[in-house]
């Protein structure tokens, strides 16, 4: 493979242009002075200023962050438990159903999850009087349910390649099984748990469809606010909001990527050192 694959590299360049031109165009037009969102009328940052004065946007952002924090944390706890159960506890009653319930939400169209959640909450409200109204609680419950399975997938993938010899050593040294879990297993898989949490957090922060079905009066998350505005067309203030969100997420992902790469490199170096001193 000494020849440079010209065709492939051309497609790669066009592919990246395809992926990034729409986002870049949106960013450029967020600095558009014109009220007409798609006609250039000179440079301006007025839409950003308007954004920071808009209480509606700030309230929605805070609500979204609150829901994402709570739901990602609970989803990570439940999802990690499910991952451990599926990889480590090979025999328990109803395991097939359990693994089915962990996979199904991954392929379930969001509309169906949303509709089923809404019917469930409405009937529950009718039968036992709770939830009286939909809002923060129902949105959070729904988000936990569909994001925990993503955490499970990440944790499962990590546990499968776990070196069980360390766990066995701890057992031989007299640790109880749950102590091994807390002292050995969880610390070792903690990077996977962290990326599971990040995944759950972004999924929750980004969700529109399931949230539209589980929200109630007065509970407008940021995606719902954007959704209701975007349905009416392209506006410069949404361009500005979108730019800020894209830049924030982009920066977050890049920083997380660098940190994880470093941690991974350090872990590999440590392992190599350990082998060398032992061998």
């Amino acid at each position: 493979m000494k020849r440079r694959p010209i065709f492939l590299l051309t497609v790669l360049a066009f592919g990246f242009a395809f992926l990034y031109v729409p986002i870049l165009s949106m960013i450029v037009y967020s600095f558009n002075a014109s009220r007409l969102a798609t006609v250039w009328g000179g440079f301006s940052t007025k839409w950003y200023a308007a954004l920071f004065r808009n209480d509606q946007v700030i309230d929605a952002l805070l609500l979204s962050l609150k829901i994402a924090l709570v739901s990602a944390t609970i989803a990570t706890i439940l999802g990690t438990m499910a991952g451990i159960a599926l990889v480590r506890m090979t025999k328990f009653r109803g395991r097939t159903l359990f693994s089915g319930m962990v996979t199904a939400p991954l392929v379930m169209p969001e509309v169906i999850t949303g509709v089923s959640m809404l019917i469930f909450f409405l009937l529950l409200g009718k039968w036992i009087g709770w939830p009286e109204q939909r809002g923060f609680t129902t949105i959070t419950l729904a988000h936990i349910t569909f994001s925990m399975v993503f955490v499970t997938t990440v944790v499962q993938a990590r546990l499968v390649q776990f070196d069980r010899a360390i766990e066995e050593a701890a057992m031989d040294l007299g640790s109880r099984p749950w102590q091994v879990l807390f002292d050995i297993t969880l610390p070792v898989i903690s990077p996977a748990i962290l990326s599971g949490w990040l995944l759950a957090f972004t999924i929750s922060l980004d969700d529109v469809v399931i949230t539209t079905f589980t929200t109630g009066p007065g509970s407008t998350t940021l995606p719902l606010l954007i959704w209701s505005k975007v349905k009416l067309g392209v506006t410069p203030d949404i361009n500005a909001l979108a730019t800020l969100m894209v830049l924030a997420v982009g920066a977050g992902v890049i920083v997380a990527g660098i940190v994880m790469n470093r941690a991974e490199a350090r872990r590999l170096a440590d392992e190599r050192m350990a082998y060398r001193t032992n061998g």
């Binding site: 990034y20 969102a37 798609t38 979108a242 969100m245 997420v249």
Partner: peptide, 27 residues
């Protein structure tokens, strides 16, 4: 990383970005 990055950014906003491009008066 550049392939994965759009996946982390808001789905809704990626759809929205195309609304801006496809509109009648866009460049």
């Amino acid at each position: 990383m550049l392939v994965i990055l759009p996946f982390w950014t808001s789905f809704l906003l990626r759809v929205y970005a195309w609304m801006g491009l496809m509109g009648k008066s866009s460049w």
